[in-house]
Design a binder for these strands. Structure first.
Lengths: 329, 329
DNA sequence: TTGAAAGCGCTAACAC
DNA sequence: GTGTTAGCGCTTTCAA
């Protein structure tokens, strides 16, 4: 591979001049510029990125951490973040936490090592206290997940509203025995969603039974498991807020297997509005959330931080979820 | 951020010694090693990765190109590749082609710029001729996709066998009017799959009708579209090889809507064995492919190439698909 | 408008 | 065992 020195030598100029041409700086005579460009073309020269990075102290890389890259919601988030980042010349590194605290800290280590310019956390495994320590090494943005004290940009959904709206729909349809699923119990986003759920219940004079709280609900198989549990209960809920379309699909499938009428005997509300909602029978009524917008806002917040257009400080952007009515509620 | 110089100064040694400690080289007295480690600990020092990269001419990054990061199959592939790469100290950069030739070339440019050490192509948009030009800049591995002339490691499924086995199953069940879906027509993997399909037909003395060939089949919505087309035909197939579980799910859903009995009037075979197969009604009979094994083999092939344990040459590893019988065939 | 030279932070010959 | 020194390839003062 040719270096800038060779280009300089062959075009009879200094490497400063070559660098100027490369970076579109002014003050290069047309003649030299042309000569340099010709040599570059001829030698098929491309500047070495590692050298540029060392020199500029910028990597143009962003790390994105998600629990699993193949969970439909996170896969979608990755897709849009990666595409948006590229528009701003940033490349995205996937990091999976697999729900392990320690893996999340490894992502943050990348910041310290200057392997990436910023980190976007799409889930949260550690106490904020432990994450905070890394803020001095570079910007962090919270996307999808929420935290009450995080002194960084937070781009999230109005989980309270989602919880409230969904539950309201159940109530409208005459339900008053409601179950609730969450993925990880310590997620602040989940907690707010549950608060919305609880508020809707209490506003309607209903109250919640703790035995109908199901955790670790991520996948279709979790949906199967939860429905098995419900089926074995002596007192059963008639509506379930799943927090995730995969779980909803699993519950519906298994409920039909057990001969439940859905939504009459068991109403099931999804979350995310993934395309799977359209293939189950009945189709899944769900909560549509603006994933693409979330991804774009999060990346833009990060880019602004990196360009010094904004300082690292708390800044919560809340996106609105909307109900998508189909058949399962 | 402290640099190696500061560590050297504060521990009263040369930076060479610090570097030796950092890289676990021998020939450092226990006493100095201890002193250096203490200073490192105290200053919370971490070596700057950009500098190391420039010096070593290695980035420890791998680029993975997929059409879309949120297609379930590719998301799964990403997940496993990323996890496997990490075991070997490599980080993965996601690159989406969105089925554009030019985006695929951008991934290969990364190799030229020394932004990544290797590129793993999981789909193929360009003629091999155009990709070949980049091989001189670094190793390329083909995973999931196949190419007859590619002079690089190719890790793929036996698509011919998958096509043959699936079609054989249809025939066993008494079908002789068969349709076939593919995603992109120019994919060699798809072509081999179709060859297996055709061979099974001809071995049974059947023959294929071109009007039952459907292309651009990726998603649930494509499944809807294809089923609409089938429904509007005067002569209809009784079995369809979809090449993808999402498409199968869409077809089944829409077929039920049109009151077809599945599999009696229309047998539907999926591909990939994703969890969506278990929530449709009927459940999807599909072809199970070893995604995780594919991902691991591909990454290992790449790592061997990078470690000089093997040279860049044609080396085809073919993994076997197996039928997963459920209800839709 | 141009170029010489310094230096980003690190590793590895080489000499002692 | 240890340190001096020369770069890796680039950008950016600074002086001309």
């Amino acid at each position: 591979m040719p270096t800038i020195d060779e280009i300089a030598k062959l075009s009879n100029v200094s490497k400063t001049t070559v660098s100027r041409v490369l970076n579109d700086h002014p003050y290069v005579s047309e003649e030299k510029r042309k000569r340099v460009l010709e040599v570059i073309e001829k030698l098929d020269y491309i500047p070495n990125t590692s050298a540029r990075k060392l020199r500029s102290n910028k990597t143009m890389f962003l790390a994105v951490s998600v629990p699993h890259a193949d969970h439909p919601f996170f896969a979608q988030l990755m897709k849009h973040m990666s595409a948006e980042a590229l528009k701003h010349q940033y490349k995205v590194i996937v990091f999976q936490t697999f729900y392990q605290k320690q893996n999340e800290l490894k992502v943050l280590e990348l910041l310290k090592r200057k392997e990436v310019d910023g980190v976007m956390l799409c889930s949260l495994e550690n106490e904020w206290e432990n994450i905070k320590k890394y803020l001095k090494y570079g910007p962090v943005v919270l996307a999808n997940e929420f935290h009450a004290e995080a002194d960084v940009p937070v781009i999230c959904y109005d989980e309270f509203e989602a919880g409230y709206k969904g539950t309201e729909l159940f109530i409208q349809k005459g339900h008053h025995l409601m179950a609730f699923c969450c993925d990880t119990i310590h997620s602040k986003a989940q907690i707010m969603r549950k608060e919305g759920f609880m508020k809707a219940l209490s506003d309607a004079g209903l109250h919640f039974q703790e035995k109908w709280m199901f955790s670790h609900a991520f996948t279709i198989h979790d949906g199967f498991r939860i429905m098995d549990q419900i089926h074995s209960m002596s007192e059963k809920p008639t509506a379930i807020f799943t927090g995730n379309d995969q779980v909803a699909a699993g519950i519906i499938k298994r409920a039909r297997y057990y001969q439940y009428e859905v939504p009459e005997q068991l109403a099931v509300l999804g979350y995310d509005n993934q395309s799977i909602c359209e293939v189950t029978d009945p189709e899944i009524t769900t909560i549509d959330i603006p994933v693409e917008e979330l991804a774009q806002k999060a990346v833009c917040a990060m880019v602004n931080l990196l360009n010094g257009k904004s300082g690292l400080q708390r800044d919560v952007a809340t996106l609105s979820p909307t109900l998508k009515i189909r058949q399962s509620v």
